[in-house]
Simulated assay, not measured.
Amino acid sequence: MSDPKAHMTIPAPGKGLDIAREYWTEWGRSWLASRYADLLSNIGVGLFSGSDVLCADDALSRDHGWGPRFDVFRVDEDGISNESLQSEMRNAAPAEWSGVRNRFQFTPSIQVHTACEYFGSFFTNHRLPESLDDWVCCRNALANLESHLHYIRHGAVFYDPKGILGDIQAKLRNYPEDIWFLRMAQLCYDVAHYGEYNFCWRLAKRKDPIASEIAIGNFQHAVMALAIVMDHDYAPYWKWIHHVFQSCAIAGQLDAYLFEVSTTIEYERRATLVTSICKTLMKELVKRDIVPEDLDDGSGLPLFFQAQAYLTSRIGDSAIKALMR
């Protein structure tokens, strides 16, 4: 078993995930092998939260939930309870690794879970979805659920000999098609509501500074989330959405617009930028055959409201379709 003290003087790598992976590989795995060897073949180990999982961490990320940490996932609690195993591991764990101290006062560095219970807890009915009905109950929490789904899909897996974590990641890799249409319809509504309609048609003309900032922030979030979701991915927590958005296929066409609309205070210029963002995003939806080229029905409604209606019409399941506001 590795001597934890031998690593305390090594300069910390630039990213927390490097430290976390090493913490498991060189200490956690060795400790389990010496105490509960039979568990090693029946667990998965990784991380599914935190900026480090998204490789978005920096020096400011290190005040909590960063560095020497990992989560253990089990099929069941056979042999020893999760609570007992977690307590033993925390008590035995070195307080410092690679020059970084654990931050127990914020996020425990080692957590032990039953896999299906942990990942199922993000859903309203507290279980992993088996059918569309299991998604229906999440209708009011879909935006919050989506960030967890992003972390599940992109989580860092350190050890998974039986595929406990890999199977769950595969199961939740994408929205079912009807939920995908629903989520895009919701985001099209937000693009229209905060951008095309309320900002361009009302707030920019009223020159209302506070409402304008609220509208622009929600509009930008909806645009980036829609870009991510139409790539068949999940949009993460708002603080990291731009970090993830930059990897989207359409990011190169939109990022300069999004940056300028954040930094200019001139209302007419902002309205022009919002319109340009909407036109660019709509062209991409048409290019991908998500909405038709002749979408405009001549009603005069903002196009993204019309896109919302069209995408809702593409939902096959009546219960899912009824979820659209």
Rank of each mutant, 00 (worst) to 15 (best):
A227T: 10
H243D: 14
K283I: 01
G155V: 13
N140F: 06
G195F: 06
F219Q: 05
A204R: 08
Y189P: 06
D76R: 12
N198T: 15
R270K: 11
D71Y: 08
S34W: 00
I250A: 10
Q246A: 13
E146T: 09
A59I: 03
M324E: 03
F245G: 06
S81W: 02
A37I: 07
K279Y: 03
A322D: 13
Y189R: 08
L285I: 00
L149Y: 13
M324V: 12
A156I: 13
G16I: 03
M224T: 15
L254K: 12
L301K: 12
S51W: 00
L311H: 08
C116P: 02
H64K: 11
A235D: 04
R314E: 05
L165D: 10
S81V: 08
R101E: 09
N91S: 05
A235Q: 11
F304M: 11
H243N: 14
L226Y: 05
I80A: 11
S98E: 08
Q169E: 08
S34N: 15
F73Y: 15
Q169H: 02
Y194H: 12
A92R: 02
K283P: 02
E284F: 04
I241S: 08
D160N: 13
F123L: 09
I315W: 05
L47W: 12
D233G: 15
Y159A: 08
G120V: 00
I216T: 03
Y310F: 15
L254P: 04
E117D: 14
C278L: 00
G16R: 12
W180A: 03
R69K: 14
M324Q: 14
L187C: 13
K287F: 09
L285G: 01
W238Q: 08
M8A: 13
M89V: 14
V136W: 04
H193A: 06
D255K: 02
K5G: 09
